[in-house]
């Protein structure tokens, strides 16, 4: 029994190690001093890549584009997605089931099909769509919305409607009730959903690559440059994104620990 116990723990730790290994390699190779154009073999330690992170031409611009599209598409998708979630959870109406299906479908379609079909629309000579920044924005809103709906919905389902009714009974009008009761209650879910949306947007390559035209987000930039060279600065940017994301996530985990301990203390 004890042996089996340790066997399982060892296996679990090995898989965790497997998951962590490439991350460690990405960070390690951001400090490499490669001799050729490719950053595949360890040569020597340097801080230069971090000091001159934007030395490769186009890297800074692609990062700015990624951030702009991430923020814009997340804001729009969070608003649209929260509205859909409110409608689906709080109301019974004709077409509710098909709305659910329409939200679910993009998540279960391979990314390459999403990208290809958007490009099929955008290459039509309609004169409306110019392939570039705004077509990337449109695509990102489209695939993020579903994830926002799912995340906010999960929160809304466990939500006490009596609080809103109480506010209405106490004479609050609809807008005041929404502002003072509903919104504060769903705000954490909207924040969590938008963080997820932003992460999805920053990371997306496949769909973006199809609808980007000449515009470069960070992943598109990496794809283009990976064929001719891989400057270690690419690892620097990836490591920086990772460290920021992990700091936010760790903060969230610690905050959960603290609030659960506080709750236990109160009870």
């Amino acid at each position: 029994m004890r042996v089996k116990h340790h066997l399982l723990t060892t296996y679990a730790m090995l898989v965790i190690g497997y998951l962590m290994l490439p991350i460690a390699v990405v960070i390690l190779f951001s400090f490499n001093e490669p001799e050729g154009r490719f950053n595949y073999v360890w040569q020597g330690f340097t801080f230069d890549n971090w000091a001159n992170w934007d030395a490769p031409i186009g890297l800074r611009e692609s990062m700015i584009t990624s951030l702009e599209i991430g923020v814009l598409s997340t804001v729009v998708a969070t608003i649209l997605g929260t509205m859909i979630a409110l409608a689906i959870v709080r109301h019974h109406f004709r077409g509710r089931a098909s709305s659910n299906v329409l939200v679910f479908l993009p998540m279960s379609t391979p990314e390459i099909v999403l990208g290809a079909s958007l490009l099929a629309l955008f290459i039509q000579q309609t004169g409306i769509f110019v392939i570039g920044f705004w077509t990337i924005f449109i695509a990102h809103v489209m695939f993020i919305v579903s994830y926002i709906v799912v995340t906010v919905k999960a929160r809304l389902i466990g939500f006490d409607r009596h609080l809103e009714e109480a506010a209405a009974d106490l004479g609050a009008d609809e807008l005041t009730t929404f502002r003072k009761v509903t919104f504060p209650l769903i705000a954490p879910a909207m924040l969590a959903a938008s963080l997820l949306g932003f992460a999805l947007s920053i990371d997306d390559f496949v769909i973006t690559y199809f609808v980007a035209g000449g515009e470069q987000t960070f992943p598109v930039y990496v794809w283009g440059i990976a064929r001719v060279a891989t400057p270690p600065q690419v690892n620097v940017v990836a490591s920086a994104i990772f460290l920021v994301a992990i700091a936010v996530a760790l903060g969230n985990v610690l905050w959960q620990y603290r609030s659960s301990r506080r709750q236990r203390g109160a009870a």
């Binding site: 998951l19 962590m20 490439p22 991350i23 990405v26 992460a199 920053i202 990371d203 390559f205 960070f218 992943p219 990496v222 794809w223 990976a226 990836a238 994104i241 990772f242 994301a245 992990i246 996530a249």
Partner: peptide
Amino acid sequence: APFFVTYL
């Protein structure tokens, strides 16, 4: 955590 490192 691997999701926090760009897919490519």
